[in-house]
Amino acid sequence: MRHLEINDLTAGYGGTPILRGVSLGVDKGEVVSLIGPSGSGKSTLLRVLIGLTPPSAGAVHVGGEAVDYGKRASVAALRRRMSIVFQQFNLFQNMTVLGNITIAPIKTRGLAAAAAEARARALLDNVGLADKADQYPDQLSGGQQQRVAIARALAMDPEILLLDEVTSALDPERVGEVLDTIRTLAGGGITLILVSHEMHFVREISTRVVMMDAGAVVETGPPSQIFGEPEAARTRAFIGSIVGGL
């Protein structure tokens, strides 16, 4: 059994299908990147996985356990193993950086405040923001906020971390610092599933790349295959359209 097992997953908003039977298996410690044109369902797949958008059919297993997205307890158990970083950071504006990182471990996992704070400070140190602990999100740049958001997700000790276009909302000069942070995570045992338009980065960091289009997986393979000699015509066309950027 693989670490994350997705079988024939479908989802949609009000009758419009967004995911049309996605199947994918991910091993522990893998770095899997989802690419494809906008509207292909990449972000929706992440939202379904974390339980923000309900699936209409299909099955998801994490570590061999089936997830029942209709059951609150099942979703809560899932979220103890899986976390997400959003495109817009979604940091709580009413809390300091430290508060943002410690609140969930304290309130949802029953961690002692002192332990949560020590862990938060260590994580902040890792993302290079140790000195920002007592600032509010709106006092930070976008890149800094996104690094805090990553630290916040890591504070939950997830086995799987979903990264949803985490650099799309940033100024170009801020993208590097966030990518650097992600690089330090890869290969550290945590499973990463990311949606990104930074093709250089995807090619460099991924163990596997998944090409999606119109709510379905078109092709899966190592970066060398997807960017070098893609099998599907749709992948070729997509890579061709952005190859100028590579």
Partner: peptide, 25 residues
């Protein structure tokens, strides 16, 4: 809404999300 989703993804209950995140803001 993103604030509520952030809270949900971090396993906050509806009440925690309202009390800790939505109401203070």
């Amino acid at each position: 809404r993103a604030q509520v989703e952030g809270a949900a993804a971090m396993n906050f209950s509806a009440w925690q999300s309202f009390w800790l995140v939505v109401l203070p803001q």
